[in-house]
């Protein structure tokens, strides 16, 4: 297991405070999730900005011992190739079926947007990066939680390899089903935010997002997008239309 030393340097602190101040002043620019004039989304925005302002940055979520690993339900979409699933997409579902039959050898993760070197990564490419293994708690918005071990590559390493541009602010994740979600750069660069290909010492099982899923340990479970297909780095906030949480009535930021 690789341990990460977290250095909360003065510079990150100053940058953090400055960007938090910027967030407060930003008003209705596209640097924040939209409220659509909806009071619930205004409350979500207040929670988001308050947490960014008041919580120390880069705190690590608690990591557990192997004996703490618990049973874990698989919910939401548990197989993108299954047409009975609520978020089924016929075209991507068929592609997923084909990739799975081939043991995901032909699976490629595309990295696009505000990066100097857009490109695709195979499972082997991702496994060539230094790996990180963490035993963390998955907290579902429904109210339950489960502890599992996740192995993968830090998202930060992949973004750096792709040459993320300094103006980039958000990272958006598209899945093989009809879902997508995004996180801000604060969470994207967090040491425990990983692209996980392993779970509890094995390959990531299909119901939990094979071949690769996102793990965001400082937010609720639904932000940890399963069945990753495409990552798009943006300067401006993108609500991801019908694929994203916002237009389906869900909060975009769920650190609470």
């Amino acid at each position: 297991m690789k341990t990460e030393k977290i250095v909360a340097s003065r510079r990150t602190l100053i940058t953090g405070l400055a960007s938090a101040g910027g967030l407060l002043l930003a008003g209705c620019s596209k640097e924040l999730p939209p409220t659509y004039g909806n009071i619930l989304r205004m409350g979500d925005l207040l929670t988001y900005q308050s947490q960014r302002l008041l919580l120390p940055s880069n705190s690590l979520a608690k990591e557990y011992a192997r004996r703490d690993i618990s049973s874990i339900p698989a919910i939401g979409n548990t197989n993108p190739a299954d047409s009975h699933q609520q978020t089924y997409n016929a075209a991507r579902g068929a592609t997923y079926e084909h990739l799975r039959a081939g043991g995901f050898a032909d699976w490629r993760l595309s990295i696009e947007g505000r990066v100097a070197r857009p490109g695709t990564y195979s499972l082997t490419d991702l496994q060539r990066f230094p790996s990180r293994t963490q035993i963390t708690k998955h907290t579902c918005e429904e109210g339950w939680s489960a502890i599992a071990e996740w192995t993968g590559v830090q998202l930060r390493r992949v973004l750096e390899a792709a040459g993320m541009l300094p103006s980039a602010r958000f990272v958006n994740f598209y899945a093989f089903d009809d879902t997508a979600d995004g996180i801000d750069m604060h969470d994207a660069l967090h040491p425990q935010t990983i692209l996980a290909y392993g779970m509890n010492g094995r390959e990531l099982p299909v119901p939990h997002g094979a071949p690769v899923r996102l793990r965001v340990e400082t937010q609720l479970g639904y932000k940890s997008v399963k069945f990753l297909q495409r990552i798009v780095v943006t300067n401006e906030f993108d609500d991801l239309g019908k694929l994203g949480p916002l237009q389906n009535g869900w909060s975009w930021y769920v650190g609470i």
Binding site: L40, M42, G43, E141, E142, S251, I256
Partner: peptide, 21 residues
């Protein structure tokens, strides 16, 4: 691990946001 095969009652989309508001 097991896959859930039923649709649960879940009104947390507005429920949670209103709770925190």
């Amino acid at each position: 691990s097991a896959v859930r095969t039923y649709d649960i009652l879940n009104e947390n989309s507005w429920g949670r946001s209103l709770h925190f508001l």
